[in-house]
Design a binder for these strands. Sequence first.
DNA 1: TTGTATGCGTTATCAG
DNA 2: CTGATAACGCATACAA
Lengths: 339, 339
Amino acid sequence: MARIVDVAREAGVSTATVSRVLNGKDVNRELAAKVRSAVENLGYIPDRTARSLRRGASDVVALVLPDIENPFFTAVARGVEDVLHGAGYSVVLCNTDDDPGKEGRYLGVAEHENMAGVLIAPASGQPQLDALLDRGRAVVVLDRQVERPVDQVAFDNQALGERCARELLASGFHRIACITGPVGTRTAIERASGWSRALGAVGVDAPEDLLVHANFRVDGGYEALAHLLDLPEPPDAVLATNNLVGVGVLRALADSHVALTGHGRGDSAGAPVPGGAVGVGIIGDLPFATSRTTDVHLVPLNPRALGTTAAQLLLERLTDPGSPVRSIVQTVAPVGARH
Amino acid sequence: MARIVDVAREAGVSTATVSRVLNGKDVNRELAAKVRSAVENLGYIPDRTARSLRRGASDVVALVLPDIENPFFTAVARGVEDVLHGAGYSVVLCNTDDDPGKEGRYLGVAEHENMAGVLIAPASGQPQLDALLDRGRAVVVLDRQVERPVDQVAFDNQALGERCARELLASGFHRIACITGPVGTRTAIERASGWSRALGAVGVDAPEDLLVHANFRVDGGYEALAHLLDLPEPPDAVLATNNLVGVGVLRALADSHVALTGHGRGDSAGAPVPGGAVGVGIIGDLPFATSRTTDVHLVPLNPRALGTTAAQLLLERLTDPGSPVRSIVQTVAPVGARH
DNA sequence: TTGTATGCGTTATCAG
DNA sequence: CTGATAACGCATACAA
């Protein structure tokens, strides 16, 4: 394996000069050329470990996610990797299962491995970022905002909830339920608040019994829908605030032999018929749906773009640690989407 | 940040002794106790970077996968991470998109980053493992076997194909098509061969025009099914050899308004009716199916277990580099599965 | 600009 | 069994 000394010898210069060439410092053009050809000849690639030790920080970035089996987050991961691999960083995926304890452990690992930075979609509202921030590590929070001065990227969740609810209203549904995530999850709260707001805007108070907090997974949506169908006055439509909850809702409908419909009855009079058709709105996508979803009101997100944006923010933070903190809100996709 | 010298001073010993205690070498009990309490007091955690530089290998393992957005592989990743994180290793996910070029680049990175080992589901039949193996790095091939003396874990793919085809035969289907992956992908070939064999066992030659090679993604299954339905004599059932192809098949059926049925007509006489119901068998699972899949003949896999097995193999290789190479074939789940 | 020499934090060698 | 010290490979302060 070629080392920097080998390159130095081959090029007839010192290791310092080789290092400078490789790191873009000012070096005499001729010497630089010699160095480059020596690097080429020997197939020299710098040892990242030594470089990390010397620099005090590695070229690894931790991507800390609540659920790596959720296609939303795998798409985020792809966006992140596209950007960071291109910039010479490696990405380590960490799965927290939405458990603050696990999350804390991973953040500790990131700290003690001297990782260059951390991208995190926090499990709780208070991820333990202090140690990392105190040490000046680059940190970007994504998808779920936190109340701290730290770089962030997220969707406008309230707008998403509002828009999805509005689509359902516009399709003639009246009694619209909302199945959202845990009360401790910020995206869940915000999207539900958008639903509530949309209903308020047409003079309907969001009925408390139609707001269900579930977990943000398939079983959460499934059970929540079963519960809603059992109500004395069941809803005529359901808004699922994330993709997996949406899957659970659709599956529960199929299992209950309740039809899915894209349009409500439109007559403001009648209550929904128990056992009749139900409308469904979902914030997010259905990547592996096995049937057509033309009757589902999807408000698509772009998790991959969320990932690329977050990664770019991290790169900028790495190059300019002193720049002011930025909080970016991804705008909601402009086009009305009925897939 | 506490360093090893700080611990040494606090405990009144040399750094060498601290290192020995931390690495489980023989040390006087009293001194060891002092060291441990000093470690505790200072909250000392060894710098992995320095350790890696000194040891010549890091504690990072690369997990090289063809498609990180396929739930099959994310499940593999979870299995791998469960085991390796528990053993003190970090896992870096690398996505090759089934592109041998990308794969080669990642393997190069793994080599030059001095990673402890590599777990790989190869994109091609000849992944470039020589450099890693020559340097004595631990390598485990998973899911897709290669013709080399290297540790491997895979399913019995032919048995899987055979079993799925048999289920369809047992349900009364006669003209069974097979949609499998690219000709260059070993699992695709083997599972198709199982299908062929099952048909042969009941005296039916596997019709060439009913074997379709697609890519192993949703669009592959979708297009392949459309093609099959257009045949002069369409099949009455389809065997999808992986999960995503299965999703594509189901989606195509839904889009074509072709019904899905669990049972064939059973009368050996008639050819399938064009536009009539079609049976579906899938090797793998449908994690995010949005409708009931009771009529689908699923042959479930356990990708997470594949991951844990592969990771354990890697750990054993790391601790005992000289042990003989092992090739493990995961047995097919025993119970007949009709979900 | 270039070279020399030192240090990053840990582990392994070697002498005691 | 323990301690002093060299070495892993690279980047930088300092001197030239």
